[in-house]
Amino acid sequence: MNALRRNVLKSAGMASVVAMAATAGLLKSGSALAAWNASAFDAKSVPDALKGMGAATPAESKDISIKAPDIAENGAVVPVEVTSSIAGTTGIAIFAEKNANPLIADFKMSNGAEGYVSTRIKMGQTAKIRAVVTAGGKTYTAAKEVKVTIGGCGG
């Protein structure tokens, strides 16, 4: 009786170990898209972040529109909408120039996704929001100043 109980416990333990290993493996294979670009996201300035992304000197473009408030009362939640009317847009990156880590997000589009993203970002202080668009192997950029009355990064 007791021996049987031991056996059951033992096999249950083994099974759960195997199951855990399997889920760990699954998680790993699911994240194989592209490694998180730490050098770009940890960069302290926009040029460094651009270097980390492998896009050194983007050209100013009027075909990128950034919709964001002129004055943000709460820097913790600043709505930002970036629309690129450049044909063949495959990437949009968003920066807040004076944040401790300026690179906020890097989007890659494919299979019919339009050159448009909308999200909400944190801003430490009044600064320019910069969008860097990748289209046809070239990079373009545009910026919009947002005044922040209460910063969102200090807590």
Binding site: L33, A34, W36, N37, F41, A76, V77, V78, P79, E81, A96, N99, N101, P102, L103, I104, A105, D106, F107, K108, M109, S110, N111, G112, A113, E114, Y116, V117, S118, T119, R120, I121, K122, G152
Partner: peptide
């Protein structure tokens, strides 16, 4: 979209709490 990748994004900590994301897909 129907199993085909349309958007792949990398985010930093600069996205607001309880994030909102909007995007558009042509041909859906």
């Amino acid at each position: 979209l129907n199993g085909k990748p349309i958007l792949a994004a990398q985010w930093g900590g600069g996205i607001s709490k309880n994030p909102y994301l909007g995007f558009k897909v042509k041909g859906a």
